[in-house]
Design a protein around this nucleic acid. Structure first.
Lengths: 346, 346
DNA sequence: TTGAAAGCGCTACCAG
DNA sequence: CTGGTAGCGCTTTCAA
């Protein structure tokens, strides 16, 4: 049962019907000036009547202007990527571009090049986790998020960490633990041009934590810095280690919302009340941070905004302008219910 | 700063280098038999040496075999779609197809046709919520999920509802409320061929609930059936109405995990303990169901599995086989901590 | 203001 | 087994 066997209408069909040459139809479609109003109207009518749609594939082959932006992302069922993509989609729609997302397989078997010639630009999400990108397989313009590359969009991780710890300090906490993301070295470097802004989010947050503690004249006891891998279970394990310390912290800054949720949950399982006995601050402000009970106080990354800016840059680049690289995006502390002043010292 | 100005290698370049005709290169690439081993080897070497990659766009234009499957989905930051897509991606990778996701804008302004000619088939997620699809703008083969269409993949919603209510009944509950999804009529019909399996998830679940209650010889008191829109806030409102009843239920079956989470949270806010005072069962088994506290007992839809099957069907169709339409996918009750026997009657 | 010619990179078809 | 020819549907460049 082959569906719809009629060959689709082509530009020439439209031209014939309108009694003009294919070129004129092309000019009308692409808004190129120099078409007499009534000719234009006739063409438009023919397009309407035939239900014609440009064949984007043919257009791309012929070297026409592309109005497609591609996002390359590993797993879409990660809230982080989903938020960035949502923002990108919003911007694309506003700019009248179409957005295509290509999921990268873990094994890197995906043939990235299928969409390369179709897209005006590409947004790379977490490019470092995938192995070898060949620059030649990517569209002409590339912006990356949460990973290295030429034109990487970054967030003020250091500042965010200081906001988090500052908040805890302000509440009166002095025993503040930290659960970091990947340890340095866990991330693979971006093979090709190592952009000027390469750096490690995890390291910056750690530095922010350390500097805040030092600035407050506070010691960081042994075992107060634990590592996870941004997953909830890893957050549970790290928090369990922290809570098992002889002098457990009264507050934990966790470098990721999923891990923070895990931390809250182990605490609750251990009979440690959040925020009564333990304050928890996360990082990211994913949807789950607001949906959890207690609501998670967290450092907000403007994920959707980042996606928007990425697309705006890509469109500018595609249209011949140079948008430059914006400074790291500022973070913002979102106070919810997972933080409170420490128990009065006994 | 135009990156990489070298024109990419073409098939002819490879042919020249290998000293064969373009056709032979094409045959090697596409695994068409009839190429002498050493010729084949020479071609492979030339490909390797030049770093050649097929131009998928040109191939598609020339009518070649596509190894791309497209998913059309509204908002990617919805866990439901994300899970289905994840499953689809797994299957695609296994079958050596590439997966492309196109986000549909709310306004329906997206130009679906950009990928149409590139893809061997398309998976439509929640097609009913988007307005007018023109069959001609879609790839040759289409499978839809969570919405009508030719070849719709469905889940046993009725059976799932009966599992949920049966579980509650088995625990000893008799006052069981229901929070439904969209009311009938909220969904827009699929314009074109209204497939043989059109039906409304919400209605089926309601029917399952009603039949279970009736089969147990139980009344459904006035106000025990509330409606939401699958969002967490709507679940909160519906649960608040249920809990505000003179004879509030001791258990609620909620037709969606996000709404169920909302129900648990208002209950907690009202001082109603879950599961002590109120049992809650959700539907879907999204990641949040397992990540919440208490863990949400829910009816699991095999979302990833559905995505996999959709891709398998599409690939079969693309390769000329007819996979037929599988029966509704069975659901499974996942017991977690949000359900318990009712308080002993006073 | 409009049109004719050429070709993007590839594959189908049919020769040799 | 291999190669030539034609053409997918569009846009470019240039001429009318």
């Amino acid at each position: 049962m082959a569906p719809d066997k009629r060959p689709p209408t082509t530009l020439s069909d439209v031209a014939r019907r309108a009694g003009v040459s294919p070129m004129t139809v092309s000019n009308v479609i692409n808004g190129k000036g120099g078409v007499r109003p009534d000719t234009r109207r006739r063409v438009l009518e023919a397009i309407e009547a035939t239900g014609y749609r440009v064949n984007a594939v043919a257009r791309a082959l012929a070297g026409g202007q592309s109005r497609v932006i591609t996002v390359f992302s590993p797993q879409l069922n990660r809230p982080y990527a989903a938020e960035v993509i949502q923002g990108a989609a919003l911007a694309a729609e506003r700019l009248n571009y179409d957005l295509i997302v290509m999921m990268l397989s873990e094994q890197g078997r995906s043939d990235v090049s299928v969409v390369t010639r179709l897209a005006a630009g590409a947004l790379l999400i977490q490019p470092s986790s995938e192995g070898r990108w060949r620059r030649a397989d990517l569209p002409a313009h590339v912006v990356s998020v949460d990973g290295p590359g030429e034109r990487p969009l970054t967030v003020d991780n250091y500042g965010g960490a200081r906001q988090a710890v500052g908040h805890l300090l302000g509440l009166g906490h002095t025993r503040i633990g930290f659960i970091s993301g990947l340890e340095s070295g866990d991330r693979q470097p971006f093979p090709h041009p190592p952009g000027p802004h390469d750096r490690d989010d995890a390291d910056e947050r750690l530095r922010g934590y350390l500097d805040s503690m030092a600035a407050a004249g506070l010691e960081v006891p042994a075992g107060y810095v634990q590592h996870g891998d941004y997953s909830k279970p890893s957050g549970e394990r790290a928090a369990a280690r922290l809570l098992g310390l002889p002098q457990p912290p009264s507050a934990i800054f966790v470098s990721g919302d999923a891990m923070a949720l895990g931390a809250m949950h182990v605490a609750q399982d251990l009979g440690v009340r959040v925020p009564g006995d333990l304050s928890v601050v996360g990082f990211d402000d994913l949807p789950i941070a607001a949906a959890s009970r207690p609501g998670l106080t967290t450092v907000r990354q403007p994920l959707q905004r980042i996606g928007e800016v990425a697309v705006q840059m890509l469109v500018a680049l595609a249209e011949g302008r140079d948008p430059g690289l914006p400074p790291p995006f500022p973070t913002e502390l979102v106070e919810r219910e997972s933080t409170a002043p420490p128990r009065p010292a006994r």
